[in-house]
Write a protein that binds this DNA or RNA. Structure first.
Length: 481
DNA sequence: ATGTAC
């Protein structure tokens, strides 16, 4: 176990802690938190990982940690790191995570809680029957090889073009629903493709979910209205990623980089930080494969949205059951962005792993209808707890990034030992939250006690000036992966 | 997160 690094309050403002550069660190560590900046889990090495990331070739600014930071593979989950592409900056699959483009989508229903209430059990049953979940195969849309190619290249756009959604959906997806520059060749290996064929339109497992929610509180009426949500409204939130395809791509490219690193003279503090220069053939190949997996994840959330729409319209009719996309955003991805560094614009490879992009009002990457309010930032809560809709703010730190969720503080095993799934289900149902899917063990592993308090994480994110609250959502029903 | 171990 590495020694816990020294961390101190930052002079740059409230809600910030700093790890001064020592040893091989090229930049400081910056941890955003209101109090107790140390991750709570016993043996959690997240801060040591913040230090390791600070030593990556080409890193600029700082090695950042969001308020929900916890221990991950190589990089901490809740970590943000940018490298200077033209100054030998590296790209690392560990800085994106195994679940490439894991993310969240929020849809707004055309009804309120009271209108839905009599039909909620039937809607939940229909969702339970329509939403593939759990490990392994199961898909809303079984793909042929050529269809998979289109999904990898065009993401949610191909799903919509094929009748799975409406054109307006794409305007409300980050990057218009498709990252450009996705792999056209062997960067996505045969095993990754095989795993992807049978999983498009599926939740997966762990903390992934589809929830029916109610808008519990609105903090900014104007922003909420621009985004298409209002108090009392029913919403659907989907949290999932690129399933086995993204996992296999990460595995394959970590192995390739682990072998290639020496050739580029890249030395890292932890083998799990395997990295190569962004401009190297291996770096470019990873970014193309990552984009393909990101497109798969976006199409995955699009297909699940369609399944949810069928469940809602089936029970509520085509008018009341309509689901309008609020936004779709990833929290596990690297992107090439231009930012000012020491006063000059630089091309950066920004790794966000368990961190959400949070563009401020007026940013040119926003669609016109969101230009005034900023980028919607979707923060999924833990089962049975609140979720949040935030928006990016001017001057947001960490290259315009925010948190991504509550952040685990107890292992799956530890969580399951603490509370039985049966009791948890009874607790949820006694609070009027319908649960469909998963096993007792699956429920117990995701117990709210295994996570930080989402309200506190979001408050810390806001007070650190990373993003601000637009609305809070609470669950009415959950379909667990 | 993950055909929860190559």
């Amino acid at each position: 176990m590495a020694e816990q690094p020294r961390i101190e309050a930052s002079a740059e403002g409230p809600g910030r802690y700093r790890i001064a550069p020592t040893g091989d660190m090229r930049v400081p560590g910056v941890v955003f938190a209101t109090e107790d900046p140390l991750p709570q889990a016993a043996g959690d090495q997240a801060l040591a990982q913040v230090v390791n990331v600070a030593a990556l070739p080409g890193i600029v600014g700082a090695s950042y940690a969001m308020p929900d930071v916890h221990w991950g593979y190589g990089f901490p989950i809740g970590g943000v790191a940018a490298t200077d592409v033209e100054a030998g900056g590296v790209v690392s699959p560990g800085g994106v995570g195994f679940d490439i483009s894991c993310g969240v989508r929020l849809l707004a229903a055309r009804c309120d809680r009271a209108e839905l209430a009599p039909r909620l059990p039937a809607v939940m049953d229909s969702l339970g029957a329509r939403i593939p979940r759990g490990a392994g195969r199961g898909a809303v849309w079984e793909l042929s090889d050529s269809r998979l190619d289109r999904v990898l290249a065009e993401g949610a756009r191909h799903a919509v073009d094929s009748g799975h959604g409406v054109a307006r959906d794409l305007a409300r997806c980050e990057d218009g629903g498709a990252l450009t520059g996705a792999a056209a060749g062997g960067e996505v290996g045969r095993r990754a493709r095989e795993r992807g064929l049978g999983q498009l339109g599926s939740l997966g497992s762990g903390n992934h979910f589809l929830e029916v929610q109610e808008v519990d509180e609105v903090y900014d009426e104007a922003a909420a209205e621009a985004m298409g949500v209002r108090a009392g409204q029913v919403c659907v939130m989907i949290h999932c990623g690129s399933r086995g395809l993204g996992h296999q791509i990460c595995t394959d490219h970590v192995r390739t980089m682990d072998r290639a690193m020496r050739r580029y003279g890249v030395r890292v503090a932890d083998r799990q930080l395997a990295a190569v220069p962004v401009t190297s053939p291996e770096g470019e190949a990873y970014l193309r494969a990552m984009a393909a997996a990101a497109n798969y994840a976006r199409a995955n959330r699009q297909l699940l949205s369609e399944a949810a729409r069928r469940a809602f319209t089936g029970e509520l009719g085509t008018e009341r059951g309509g689901l309008d996309l609020v936004y779709d955003i990833s929290h596990n991805v690297a992107s090439l962005e231009t930012h000012r560094v020491d006063g000059a614009p630089r091309r950066l490879c920004v790794h966000r792993k368990g961190a959400t992009r949070a563009l401020p009002p007026g940013h040119r990457d926003l669609p016109p209808e969101l230009a005034e309010v900023g980028q919607p930032v979707l923060i999924p809560g833990t089962m049975g707890t609140a979720s949040y809709l935030l928006t990016g703010v001017e001057g947001g730190g960490a290259w315009h990034s925010a948190c991504h969720g509550a952040g685990r503080v107890r292992s799956r095993h530890g969580a399951a030992r603490e509370i039985g799934g049966g009791r948890l289900r009874a607790d949820l149902e006694s609070r009027g939250i319908a649960v469909r899917g998963t096993t007792a063990r699956g429920l117990a592993e995701e117990a709210p006690t295994a996570y930080k308090d989402i309200d506190a994480v979001v408050a810390a994110t806001e007070s650190a000036g990373l993003a601000r609250r637009v609305a809070r959502l609470v669950p009415l029903g959950v379909v667990k992966g």
